[in-house]
Every structure is written in C-alpha cells, then in structure tokens.
C-alpha cells in the first residue's frame, strides 16, 4: 500500500483553514464594526441635535422617526451615484443632472413633510415632542430638514464621484472629528458660551433660517464639486 504524499490534517486544522479563507479579505470583519460605529455615532448625533436645537417653546426628544432622515440620505446618495454615468451618457450635463436630482429630492421632501404632519395630527406626537398643530413653521422646518439631509448626501456623493475613495475617507475622517468635537463642546462649559448652540436662545424660525442656510451651502458646495467630476 502506498502512503498518501500529503497526510490529512486534523478536523480542527481543516476547519481553521476555512476560517482563514473566509477572512482573506479582513474587510468582512471590519465592515460590520464600521456600520455599528456609524449607527452609534449617527444615533448619538441625532439625539444630541434634538437636545441642542430644541426650541425654547418645546421639549423635543429623540425618536425613531428620525431614521427617515437616514433613509432619505441613503436614497439621495444612491440616486446620485447610480444615475450619474447613465445621465451623462444620455447627453445630460452635470449641472442639469445635479439640480434635476435636487428638484426630485425637494418634491420628495414636500411629500414626506405632508406625511409626517398627517401622522403627527393623528398621533399627537411630533418627532418626539408634543404636537402643537399643523403650522407653516412645522412644515417648513421638516422640509428644510429633509432637503438639508439630501443635499448633504448629494454633496458627499459628489465628493466620491470626483475624488473617489481617498476623497471619501478624507471627508468622513474630517466629519467624524467634527461630530465627536461638537457634543464634547456642547456638554463642556465652553459650549454654553456658543450662542448658536444654546437652545434657550433659538426660536423655531431662527432654526429654520440657520437650517436653510446650511442646506444652501451644502447644495452650492456639491455643485462646485460635481461640475469638475469625471465619469469613471
């Protein structure tokens, strides 16, 4: 009887080999960690934002409805990312594509604002706080919130389209620093001296104005970035 040139390994060795093959790309281990961290961060940031920007006349608390914002962020991101190359191939300019997509986002924002207010009118709960009735201010602030979110998605996707992964990593690295720094500032003594972060001084109207300005800046930034992006 001839002996086999290579002897069979033990069961543990064989199984361990498979484990090794499974994680040849260590990214499969890192990715869930990244997602968990991101979820934790986003949840934290959203709850902090509700505390920081609570108008003087309400007690806004974090509530699950806020995940609609994450959903809108993702759909806006996917739309810009997936339709960009096809649209340009079909003879559409970057500016037309970008502002056309924003129009689509604005229409969606109006739709979701109506839905949110309708739900609030029935349940009496409005984004965690007691519902004060269907008013223009509520409507506007919802739209500003939704459009701002989608503008953030559009401009971050523009960064990806123009500078690829390195641009994305740089951007999110910077953003993470800011997001970590802000709550720290807010809870520290220093935070109480920043007027814009002091919830007691902000009315709903001022919140809307600041929010619109931020959204507008994001939109312009996104445009300046995407108009020089190439098609991969």
């Amino acid at each position: 009887m001839t002996t086999l040139p290579i002897q069979q390994r033990t069961l543990v060795q064989r199984l361990w080999k498979v484990v090794g093959i499974n994680v040849v790309r260590p990214w499969v281990l890192v990715l869930p960690l990244v997602i968990m961290t991101a979820l934790f961060l986003v949840t934290g940031i959203l709850s902090w934002l509700t505390i920081a920007f609570v108008p003087a006349d309400g007690q806004l608390r974090f509530s699950p409805e806020f995940f609609l914002i994450i959903f809108l962020f993702l759909t806006a991101n996917q739309t810009i990312y997936h339709e960009y190359a096809v649209s340009l191939s079909f003879g559409i300019s970057r500016s037309d594509f970008y502002f056309g997509s924003l129009l689509n986002f604005a229409l969606q924002s109006i739709w979701y604002a109506v839905v949110c207010l309708s739900i609030a009118a029935v349940t009496g709960s409005f984004f965690g706080s007691e519902f004060s009735g269907v008013g223009v201010t509520n409507f506007v602030s919802l739209i500003v919130l939704f459009i701002g979110t989608q503008a953030l998605a559009a401009s971050t996707t523009a960064i990806y389209l123009r500078w690829g992964k390195p641009g994305m990593l740089t951007f999110f690295g910077g953003l993470a620093l800011v997001l970590v720094a802000l709550p720290v500032l807010a809870v520290s003594d220093l935070g109480s001296e920043l007027p814009t972060l002091n919830s007691e001084t902000l009315t709903m109207l001022e919140t809307n104005v600041i929010g619109s300005a931020v959204a507008l800046i994001l939109i312009i930034l996104g445009y300046l970035i995407i108009r020089k992006a190439s098609v991969r």
């Binding site: 079909f90 003879g91 559409i92 300019s93 500016s95």
Partner: peptide
Amino acid sequence: SAVLANMAF
C-alpha cells in the same frame, strides 16, 4: 446643455 443634447456616448 445645448451641445450635449445632440450627443449620445
């Protein structure tokens, strides 16, 4: 946009 409307690539 005017030029691109005439193009398919």
